[in-house]
Amino acid sequence: MTGIKHIVWDWNGTLLDDNHANLSAVNEVCGMFGRDPVDLEHWRSIFRRPLVPCYEELIGRGFADGEWERANTAYDRHYAAALPRCSLAQGVPGVLHDWAATGRTQSLLSMASHEHLVPLIAERGLSAHFTRVDGRRFDTVDDSKADHLIAHLAGLGADPATVVLIGDIDDDGHAARKAGARAILVASGMMSRERLEATGHPVADTPAEAVRVLRGV
């Protein structure tokens, strides 16, 4: 991890501890389709992008016309209701202060919609930590973060070789590879440690530990 000058942070499941809100919203979708509720361990074992086939596996069948849109709307509504009860992840915002104290920079990139994300970061008092905050500004065929990360780095004017993405799912690792950056994955979010380790990227338990790995401490 030598030569890293900039961290791109993921939000959900990385800086924000929202597993319970995610699971509650997922089980709202389960109820819509007559599927028994799932526990967090099961959800972390199957969650992936693209989301549509992931949810089709969850409910045990393909979506008919309009059903994915209804499921997505229900998820968003239920998640939004639970969001105020979500706290920042362990060690946040301290880890953001500590990284800034090294004289290096950081930004935030999330697959949550940009219009939803920006005020949320401001409400949490975190905006000043980041040189750029981007949510999902466009759709992609494969529903991956990769093209969003490439656009994010272009907006920063950053050399991908000097960047590490810290996120909580395998798609964060895939996005970093495609963009020419590096990745550290945290096992406190939406994927099990075993699935994250299978990517070949370093895995940490918390954002603070991820930065210690990055700094070789």
Results as ranks from 00 to 15, higher is better:
131 T>M: 05
151 A>N: 06
42 H>T: 11
4 I>L: 12
135 G>P: 01
201 H>P: 02
175 A>P: 07
156 L>R: 05
161 A>S: 15
157 G>H: 00
146 A>W: 07
175 A>Q: 01
80 A>P: 01
125 G>A: 09
25 A>S: 14
136 R>T: 05
194 E>A: 15
101 A>G: 08
92 V>R: 01
50 P>Q: 04
190 M>Q: 15
217 V>F: 00
106 Q>C: 07
114 H>T: 03
83 L>R: 14
34 G>A: 03
72 N>K: 12
116 H>Y: 12
109 L>V: 05
74 A>L: 12
155 G>V: 01
182 R>T: 15
93 P>D: 10
13 G>K: 05
118 V>L: 10
88 L>M: 15
191 M>F: 06
31 G>E: 04
92 V>C: 08
80 A>R: 15
194 E>Y: 13
46 I>L: 14
130 F>Q: 00
202 P>G: 10
25 A>T: 10
115 E>V: 13
211 V>F: 14
130 F>I: 02
211 V>G: 13
145 K>C: 03
167 G>T: 04
185 L>M: 09
16 L>A: 00
36 D>T: 08
134 D>I: 06
51 L>G: 10
141 V>R: 13
97 H>C: 07
143 D>Y: 03
6 H>I: 03
14 T>K: 11
95 V>M: 08
51 L>R: 00
32 M>K: 03
188 S>R: 14
22 N>W: 12
142 D>N: 09
48 R>N: 15
